[in-house]
């Protein structure tokens, strides 16, 4: 008994899902009214507002730390899942290894959560930066 035989229902299910998506898209294409497409109709929907610029704007860079945290905890969870499904749950030595493994990663997570407020721009700093840039710009303008 090979392993991939167990996954044949999954393959059939994926085929069914693909067929369902195609059928739903076709049905909505048939049923919807075909009106003229203009820029007003295809613009981004913002509730009660005129959309300003594209939808892909930039956020502060430091938000990527949260995704890195998710990735690290994801890797840790995968290895601890391997430990949890095996019969090693009762072995004291393996439990200590798991504790060391989790403690090292959790120390990093704690350090990041502690250092992250210092790594982000606070409000007064942003205001000071903006005023310095504005002063420099006006100085250049008056010189030119």
């Amino acid at each position: 008994m090979r392993l991939f035989i167990d996954f044949v229902p999954l393959l059939l299910w994926m085929g069914l899902v693909t067929a369902l998506v195609i059928v739903m898209l076709l049905a909505s294409w048939v049923l919807r009214p075909h009106v003229l497409q203009n820029s007003e109709k295809t613009s981004t929907y913002e509730c009660g507002e005129e959309p300003l610029g594209p939808a892909r704007i930039s956020f502060p860079y430091s938000y990527i730390i949260y995704t890195v945290l998710f990735l690290v905890v994801d890797v840790m969870g995968a290895f601890m899942w391997l430990y949890a499904v095996s019969a090693l749950r009762t072995s004291v030595f393996v439990v200590w290894q798991v504790v060391v493994f989790a403690a090292v990663i959790m120390a990093a997570v704690m350090f990041v959560l502690k250092i992250l407020p210092k790594a982000q721009m606070t409000g007064p700093e942003v205001v000071a930066l903006y005023e310095a840039a504005k002063e420099q710009a006006t100085g250049l303008h008056s010189e030119g």
């Binding site: 730390i65 890195v68 690290v72 890797v75 290895f79 060391v100 090292v104 990093a108 990041v112």
Partner: peptide
């Protein structure tokens, strides 16, 4: 696995 834990530690601290 302890090596992997140290790698993730260094990656996270380096990122921040």
């Amino acid at each position: 696995l302890e090596i992997i834990a140290m790698l993730l530690f260094v990656g996270l601290v380096g990122s921040v």
